[in-house]
Design a protein around this nucleic acid. Structure first.
Lengths: 224, 224
DNA sequence: CGGTATCCCCCGCGATACTG
DNA sequence: CAGTATCGCGGGGGATACCG
């Protein structure tokens, strides 16, 4: 750490904060803890972070022993180390705190269909689906910009894929919701039942997938 | 939060990090959690933070509901709220993490006699001393700048006072140590016994205070 | 002392382009 | 796609003065 920028304290809170509490780092750690390892995947979870800054932060985390960089077939993989994993309680507790105490409704610029769908596909409960075969769910996000309004979640042999273009398969279920509504459901701010009643969310398609919706559509890890 | 500066994510980790992980804030929270309430006391624990920034951060924490500002006889008092107290595990875990994983020896600019003595006086175990009467300990910190080399801890009826000028009382005990040595002892990096053996620390004065040193001289909350 | 206002520098970081 | 290099600006925050 540059001496000019340093807090210049022997206290371990200060020494740790110099690394962990710099801009974007808690959010980057969240992504790494969630299991993303590829640069492009990290970018997906951090759409407003510039690639140069992401690159820089990864280098800093590597120097701090929080991340290890491995050569991959294409590019590199960034894996969180044991010491990095021990930051997990901090990041999770920070999120829990935020969920509890920051109760303002989401600002418009915080509602992001890409981020939402990215989080959804990451937590989809695939064990619910048959070991072999295909499942297709289409999402219509009202209020999202046209080119990011329609999404398809495809589960093929329990492997999840997220598409923004029509995959050519027939839908098993369609989820129609406002972007804000689905985000609120996802974050546990309102229940699925409540969202349906308020016409913020509706499910169409095969009965068995509709009735089991809450079994495979897990909510955010921070949902109450 | 200014939209330009915002992470623009609905994720509570991001929303919390915007407040809690900004520059200086974790260290300021440490001070508030430790019980400091006055502006000047906060400054003592944050000597390298400019007063204008401290003022700004306090305002931000107040807006976020983490701190409450009360009119005091002179100036104001800043008290941490219930929601702020729930940040305590985050700050403490961050410190514990730092203590465990940031093992570089302290850089010269991180060794600060004022900060060290401030922390020491805050954790002095006063119940060890008689309910009435005076106790005086003088510290000589070798390697500290001349004007901050000598310190007196005065416990009067169990109330601790820290002085940088000779108080005119006789010493009950004298602690002679290098600044780095005492810091390492304080942080639990080496034991008192080891420090004595290596001549990094020596105690002179009344036997009963020497033999009970480790009873009243508590170590940092982050010492192992 | 307790805190705010002002000034201004500098560098963090966003934007963009570029390269393998 | 997987990152790195460059460039330019904006404002964060440090220094200082100042006011109550």
């Amino acid at each position: 750490m540059n001496i000019k920028k340093s807090y210049s304290q022997f206290c371990p809170v200060a020494r740790a904060a110099e690394i962990v509490a710099s801009r974007w780092t808690p959010v980057l750690l969240r992504e790494l803890i969630a299991g993303s390892t590829k640069f492009s995947d990290l970018r997906s979870g951090l759409p407003k972070m510039s690639p140069s800054l992401l690159s820089k932060r990864l280098r800093e985390l590597e120097e701090a022993g929080i991340v290890e960089k491995f050569k991959a077939p294409k590019g590199f993989e960034y894996h969180i180390t044991e010491s990095g994993k021990e930051l997990s309680p901090i990041v999770m507790t920070l999120g829990t705190w935020g969920q509890k105490f920051i109760t303002d409704e989401y600002a418009k610029h915080e509602l992001d269909p890409t981020l939402l769908m990215w989080d959804i596909q990451r937590r989809l409960e695939t064990t619910f689906f048959p070991e072999t075969g295909r499942f297709v769910a289409e999402f219509f996000l009202e209020g999202a910009p046209r080119e990011r309004r329609n999404w398809w979640l495809i589960v093929n042999d329990r492997v999840v894929d997220l598409c923004i273009h029509h995959p050519g398969f027939e839908n098993d279920i369609e989820i129609v919701a406002s972007l804000r509504g689905l985000t609120d459901v996802w974050m546990g701010n309102i229940s699925v039942a409540e969202a349906k009643k308020k016409k913020l969310l509706s499910l169409n398609g095969q009965k068995k997938f509709i009735s089991s919706f809450e079994n495979w559509f897990l909510l955010s890890v921070f949902a109450n």
